[in-house]
Design a protein around this nucleic acid. Structure first.
Lengths: 193, 193
DNA sequence: CACAACTTTTGACCTATATCAAATAATCAT
DNA sequence: ATGATTATTTGATATAGGTCAAAAGTTGTG
């Protein structure tokens, strides 16, 4: 059955960081809910507190914020990744980030209260969170580096590597704002060679 | 006695995230070692694995890497902050980062093996790590934003806010590379108004 | 305290990328 | 399909910040 397959893929993800007991598996299973978003659909509005985190099974979600009325893409998430508005989710307060669906997307969600329950009762979940954050941490550092001493073209190349599985499915304008360059510049970079 | 005072300041730091049992306190006390670095001294070389994390009590440490033979400052750490080479420390492998002392610095260090021992035996330490990483996470995201759609001057202002306690003690050249601009540009920004 | 070795400032000039404007091209809804 | 939106490309021009070079200022050490 399909739900089972999908849950399996989350379990596999967890197991790259921690061993999962049968008990924890069943507690997770109880709390993970399947959800579908249509292309273009808003997942989170900036005026809301983010109370859910989404583990993507299919499609792409994007986090962005508004600057001078324009959407600035913060990051993109594809299969086997978690998306939320980090500060909002962990500190239960509003933040500037919106989340929307770039493609028709399927995901599993967990509510923040359920996650806290798991943290309180399964120390290995704390470890999972620490370790998985660690790997995202590395990406953020790389991105900061890439943002400083590299040309627009090098940044685009770096982006293609980082998002090799999905970069070609993301509209140009969104990529440009993610990279901190204008659409026009990105269009010219793509036109070269 | 001085050592006790300093240890207290680390404990206070931990207690902003988790309650500390007497047992955990004494286990920490056994493992934290006091260390002193002279201005300019190298704390970590890029060709080494980073096996220690430093909690600063006085002074400033800097993390940097080399690009085209030039030092690019990655971040600065002052009082009550942890410094290490993140990937190297957590994954026990070499990375590109050096650490050095910008001022005469005093710190407490913990060895990675001791930290792992604490993670294994005190689940609240896992929680501490998760929560404290969370706050650094927020700073990294802000920095990425600041790096994209803001002018050199705005970035410098943002830097002054982020590092309000120590920004004036960091040499201009190091600040410039941290911000991703040249020394000359930063010098001109400072000269204005 | 004086010289060497850095660090910061100043000036002249150049280049990557932004801006503004308009023409195509692609996508969507009826 | 067909016109309306929305996204992308192309062109002309402007500018923030880079590069190179040299002067001035600061710091440390015998």
């Amino acid at each position: 059955m399909k739900n089972i397959e999908i849950t399996e893929s989350i379990f596999e993800h967890f197991e790259t960081f921690i061993p999962l007991s049968e008990n924890l598996k069943s507690e997770l299973e109880k709390r993970l809910k399947h959800i579908v978003f249509k292309k273009g659909e808003t997942v989170l509005n900036a005026n809301q507190i983010c109370t859910e985190s989404y583990f993507i099974n299919k499609g792409i979600l994007r986090t962005y914020f508004l600057k001078d009325g324009k959407e600035i893409s913060e990051y993109f998430c594809g299969i086997d990744e978690w998306v939320n508005s980090p500060k909002s989710f962990m500190q239960r307060k509003k933040d500037i980030y919106y989340i929307d669906a770039i493609e028709n997307t399927e995901a599993y969600l967990i509510n923040v209260n359920d996650l806290v329950y798991l943290f309180d009762n399964f120390p290995e979940m704390e470890r999972y969170a620490r370790l998985s954050m660690g790997s995202v941490f590395g990406h953020l550092m790389e991105r900061i580096t890439s943002m400083r001493f590299t040309s627009a073209k090098e940044r685009y190349n770096h982006f293609q590597k980082t998002y090799s599985a999905i970069y070609h499915r993301i509209p140009l304008g969104m990529v440009a704002s993610y990279l901190g360059i204008t659409q026009e510049t990105l269009s010219r970079i793509r036109a070269e060679k």
